[in-house]
Nucleic acid binder design. Structure first.
Length: 276
DNA sequence: AAGAAGTCCTGGGCGC
DNA sequence: TGCGCCCAGGACTTCT
């Protein structure tokens, strides 16, 4: 599940390796992942473009092209973006492949087909940008406790689904939402409007700490996440609750419980995270 | 408007 | 042993 730390790791690695190269061709064994524009237009607008920059917004990677367009990649839940040499053995689920002018290839390998790619004008004039309604970036200075409290104001929903809502805060997915709630000692089924100011401050700090540590560890490899060279991340060994049902809470020793909240598997310490 | 539920997709895990 | 069912989840759509 590529969340903010996994996408940040990918963007940093790619920035060091492919900025300055030119895309010489596109192959799409499964064009369904090309969301916009249609396949022919997409190929036309990407081919021949030099990659000038790579940045991240939420879980999106944004490649700035010499034409002024942006090439946007979202890996969905199972996608890896791999940097390979042209002759290297092909992975089994490559959906879209970008050929580079140095005989390397950027391959979107995505078994579950939830990945998406777009190319568009970055001003939003052509089509709404995927991040138009996205909330603040949790690791930059604009994400303050006050801003977080304001995003939650008036919300009566459960706190965990709200953390997964990208318009509240960008970049959290199922793993880091569970980890942040545990670090803040807040039950995932608390209603947002019942959180006290001190709890919101704790949750804000926990989100920043968990994400920063995971970026430091180059992300979590849970099932099939890999970096651009196919290597695993390191953060899975630091997970406190995610994927640890039945194991001891590192803080208090109680057995971690797995439930379903908002339709998502959810890991909670029943002693550290009390409901209501 | 916000929240809840349904949808897509397919490998792998599990039960019988 | 082997088959088939169903779960996983990010983001979008639909309904209330």
């Amino acid at each position: 599940m590529p969340e903010l730390p996994e996408v940040e790791t990918m963007v940093r690695d790619l920035r060091a390796r492919i900025v300055g190269t030119t895309i010489t061709g596109v192959v799409a064994p499964f064009p369904g992942e090309i969301v916009y524009p249609g396949y022919d237009q997409f190929v036309r607008r990407v081919t021949g473009q030099r990659i000038q920059s790579i940045v991240r917004r939420g879980k999106y990677a944004i490649l700035g092209l010499s034409s002024g367009d942006v090439l946007i990649v979202h890996r969905g839940m199972s996608g890896s973006l791999l940097l390979r040499r042209a002759g290297d053995e092909m992975e089994p689920y490559v959906r879209v492949l970008f050929e580079l002018d140095d005989r390397r290839q950027l391959r979107l390998n995505d078994p579950r087909k939830f990945g998406k790619v777009f190319v568009m004008d970055p001003t939003g004039a052509e089509r709404p940008l995927p991040w138009d309604r996205m909330g603040p970036e949790p690791l930059n200075g604009s994400f303050t406790p006050a801003r977080f409290r304001e995003r939650l104001r008036g919300r009566t929903g459960l706190i965990k689904p709200l953390l997964l809502n990208q318009s509240v805060v960008a970049g959290l997915g199922n793993i880091y939402a569970d980890e942040a709630l545990h670090a803040a000692r807040i039950h995932p089924e608390r209603r947002a409007n019942t959180l006290r100011p001190a709890e919101i401050r704790r949750l804000h700090a926990a989100i920043q700490e968990v994400l920063a540590a995971a970026v430091e560890g180059r992300g979590t490899t849970f099932s099939n996440y890999a970096d651009i060279e196919g290597r695993a991340g390191q953060y899975q060994s630091a997970l406190q609750v995610f994927g640890r049902a039945g194991a001891a809470c590192p803080r208090c020793g109680a057995a971690i419980v797995k439930t379903v909240v908002g339709g998502r598997g959810t890991h909670t310490c029943p002693r550290c995270q009390r409901p209501a």
